[in-house]
Nucleic acid binder design. Structure first.
Lengths: 247, 247
DNA sequence: ACCTGAACACCGTTCAAGT
DNA sequence: ACCTGAACACCGTTCAAGT
């Protein structure tokens, strides 16, 4: 036995994305009269989010995070098992920023719309988070609480079984996908986006015969991300509503 | 002037994801009687895809790739500007595997379905590719050719302007999102997925009062990924079809 | 034109040691 | 229980030099 690291090691799930949530949590520290530890998960997560906001996913390194916290890099390994854990933890903190109506409206479309819009807003506030949300299981407590809300709305609408999970998956994937695409284009900087669009348009014009439809319906230089999001969201909701029409 | 690196440097777009496609391509080598170069983009891309398939995104390093190609790591920088370029290039190679009907069926739903299913198959064949596709602009020649096909189908259905780009975006995002989620859960290994599901179920049961709906409609241990994909796809297509019904 | 080799400034993670 | 410090085995990228 004699665990080397407090968070425990299940072996299998250790290196898996989303793995933090699948390991046994550390028992709370004894407390009593003991000295306040310099570090805890809460502080580590807050500093991680701040660093991610500033420097992006690649900019979150154990050394820079430790420096921001005033400790040695290796000290972090007492509190988390790998750098990957920081990403899962920070991502769930972003899900915690998704505000939901205190009580469901009873109108499932309104509830689902509120969730989708709230999620989009939170993910856009932290441009690194969309890509992360798309690439790992969303199992943190905050993510699960948001799932609970969506599932409740969909069950109220009559979705069950595989229809239910397919609908919930489509809803989350749509928001995450559009936010990721938007963040990828923006890349932090709106000037980059315009430059990219311009280069793309030049290429489309240069090979119009290969892409006649794209050349005839070119993307605008200044994408209306929100407008596109709303349209696609309503396409999806209409499709979901149609599938319940027979009930 | 005197460029240090053949692919050129536009400055702005250099470090941007998708940036390879926005820089001027290298002029073809003079040829003539000169000796065959040891490296070219085609070989580099093929080796990158193979390495990504074997070791995942983090496993693609300049040194390992160079070793596989029998050259020094720094030699690669003659042919690409950064490691990031390899990801864009490899991803577009995956898009090249998406087979489409030679001619559009004329039925836009059939055409879009063929594209979506083809894209899903190709992305799943290379488990690293879904997350990548979700996190960078898709501007390679193969991706653009697939876009052309989808746009043509949607224009045929009557979509125009922002409806057109929103529809095309929703379609691509849906496929990419579901594949990314599936790959994230699988994490290469089906045993991991079952273990993860089991841990999740245990947590849901442990806090059923916090998540009554999730506890009442738990995820199955063995997810029917394809079935969920098909259902969500048809929800989306139904919504898109409904929006054209008035025409 | 294309590749090498040495070098720089980083990484994540481990482990024994301190308190 | 929690943090330090040294150490290991890596990274991407630059740049002068070779051919």
């Amino acid at each position: 036995m004699s665990p080397k690291r407090a968070p425990g090691s299940d072996g299998a799930a250790s290196a898996m994305p989303g793995g933090v949530w699948l390991r046994a949590p550390r028992p709370p520290s004894a407390g009593g009269g003991a000295a306040q530890p310099a570090l805890d998960r809460e502080r580590i997560v807050a500093a991680s989010v701040a660093l991610l906001d500033e420097r992006g996913t690649a900019g979150l390194t154990m050394r820079k995070l430790a420096e921001a916290l005033g400790v040695h890099a290796t000290s972090l390994y007492w509190h988390v098992a790998h750098r990957d854990d920081l990403l899962d933890l920070a991502l769930d903190a972003v899900f915690g920023e998704v505000t939901l109506p205190a009580r469901a409206a009873g109108d499932w479309r309104a509830d689902v719309t509120a969730f989708m819009d709230g999620l989009r807003t939170a993910l856009l506030r932290h441009p690194w988070s969309g890509a992360l949300a798309g690439s790992r299981p969303l199992l943190g407590p905050n993510a699960l609480a948001r799932s609970e809300f969506v599932y409740a709305a969909l069950v109220g609408a009559g979705f069950r079984g595989d229809d239910l999970s397919a609908a919930a998956g489509a809803i989350a994937n749509y928001v995450i996908g559009t936010v990721s695409a938007e963040a990828a284009w923006r890349h932090g900087d709106a000037r980059d986006e315009t430059a990219g669009r311009r280069a793309l348009l030049a290429r489309l014009n240069g090979s119009a015969e290969a892409h006649p439809t794209l050349a005839a319906h070119p993307p605008s230089l200044r994408t209306d991300w929100e407008g596109h999001y709303v349209r696609g969201r309503d396409f999806l909701l209409a499709g979901l509503a149609g599938s319940r029409a027979g009930d």
